[in-house]
């Protein structure tokens, strides 16, 4: 099967998700009032960020820990840490 959707791609990966998020949106108001593009919802390679009308939903369980959101957020509004040791994404191949 070739993958078409991001969901299908994410299915291929093993995640050992912590119960606590390693990604924090510092101020949801900034997303709401200052950031019409919400560009993180577009460039994030795992579609971790989803805008829910009032707040940014962070699906940290599927995060690739690439760092793009930290660098790409125009308002430096994302606190980015590594997941607790051993948690997060686990690549098996490349």
């Amino acid at each position: 099967m070739s993958t078409k959707t991001i969901e299908e791609k994410q299915y291929l990966i093993r995640f050992k998700a912590d119960t606590k998020s390693h990604l924090t949106v510092l101020d949801h108001d900034i997303c709401m009032t200052k950031c019409p593009d919400k560009i993180c919802t577009i460039f994030c390679p795992a579609e971790v960020y989803k805008w829910e009308g009032l707040r940014m939903q962070v699906g940290y369980e599927g995060c690739h820990e690439c760092g793009s959101c930290r660098i790409g957020c125009p308002y430096q509004n994302i606190k980015w840490e590594y997941p607790k040791g051993g948690h997060g994404i686990v690549f098996r191949l490349a």
Binding site: M1, S2, T3, H64, G67, F91, A94
Partner: peptide, 26 residues
């Protein structure tokens, strides 16, 4: 990535293959 995978120049090379892992990195 899907644009690349379905590009007519690329598609025949990977046709019928099965995705095994998806990865992103900076």
């Amino acid at each position: 990535l899907d644009y690349l995978k379905t590009h007519p120049m690329v598609r025949p090379l990977i046709e019928g293959g099965e995705s095994a892992e998806y990865l992103a990195h900076l």
